[in-house]
Design a protein around this nucleic acid. Structure first.
Lengths: 197, 197
DNA sequence: AATATTGATTTCGACTCGATACTACATTAA
DNA sequence: TTAATGTAGTATCGAGTCGAAATCAATATT
């Protein structure tokens, strides 16, 4: 019986905890908790379908009530802006305010991690990424969660021409940069996940 | 410029968050938060030098005050036992109570993760482990943290004979099972960490 | 038009967490 | 021996997290 999956779990949990601590450290000048920093980072990466409290809650793995609290705080501090969606007036859209952009630029929340991985070859990192990504996808499938991902690799992604793309699910055209943001409607191409042992 | 370290960070954070949620889920029958579950798991793996509030706090990445609170709760619930050290009466030693052992056995906090990793080959997992372990060690060195680890791979580990071992730092003899628990005095063999790019 | 569903917010209570202060014991220096 | 310093752990406080449940408003379904 192989114990290495448990060792991996241990490492992921510990690194996750450390990064949460790191997030707290990074945000303390602005009185932010690590969840708040994570939320800001998320908003800087979310595409136009995914900048809502709902998607954020799924991403962070908290309930929507909790997410609402955090967003309230970020709004009070002027780090984000909230505005209503035109088509569906229940939906609240979120956007980093200039202050929020500046904060991310100044605080560099990922710096410590980049340092910690500096001696690991790109290749080993990509291998680790692939293993963890598969773990995440499988876990999400097991638990009816949302996977999140970029257009490349998504079932609904269509290429219209050399530089024109389209989301088959939403029916919108997408720009190049659009396709590199993360989306909570993401669905893995080739629905089957496990190809067996 | 390679973005994959940041992708890895993202995956580790998200999986960390998910496992925290999972820990909460697992503990809800017993009214435990994920930190409590993590503490119990830690105590089930900690060796004789590492079963103290101090070591636990370092491991979980919280302050000793916070750790103290969590331990108080676990004690009230009868999941752990606390007793004084004979040599240094300031030191509190911790041990899983029978109820705590039973809880871990019943709740299987790692089950969801084991499922999520079921389709990943042992080899890929070991590669990911090695990359993350190096990340953790480097991070700890950067931040004067404690690395934790098993005797194999520790500077202070000495083999006396086929089945007799010794910790050079504490001067104690160790049994075989002892050497497979985790220790907060662990120091990586070959102190140099980064061999450059 | 009535009902169900959905996105978001509010409220509540238990708990986390860092900061600070404090107690008890241990080690060192005088 | 005593005094000063250091260390392990606990207590307390306040801001905030978090899930659960209730609520509200807008949209879908019937």
């Amino acid at each position: 019986m192989d114990k290495s999956p448990l060792v991996l779990l241990d490492l992921v949990s510990r690194l996750g905890n450390l990064m949460r601590t790191e997030g707290r450290r990074v945000g303390q000048d602005e009185q932010l908790q690590s969840v708040h920093v994570e939320a800001l980072v998320y908003l800087s990466k979310a595409n136009r379908y995914s900048n809502t409290p709902q998607a954020l809650a799924e991403y962070l793995g908290v309930t929507k009530g909790t997410a609402s609290q955090s967003l309230l705080l970020l709004d009070r501090r002027g780090l984000i802006e909230r505005y209503q969606d035109d088509l569906d007036r229940r939906v609240v859209r979120l956007r980093l305010a200039a202050t929020g952009e500046q904060f991310l630029y100044d605080a560099q929340p990922q710096l410590a991690w980049q340092h910690a991985t500096r001696n690991i070859s790109p290749n080993r990192i990509r291998n680790a990424v692939s293993a963890l990504r598969e773990t995440l996808t499988t876990f999400q499938l097991d638990n009816e969660g949302t996977a999140f991902g970029e257009c490349a690799g998504c079932q609904h992604f269509e290429r219209l021409s050399a530089r024109a793309y389209r989301c088959g699910l939403m029916g919108d055209r997408l720009s190049g940069p659009d396709t590199r943001k993360i989306c909570w409607l993401y669905e893995e191409k080739g629905s089957g996940v496990g190809e067996g042992e």
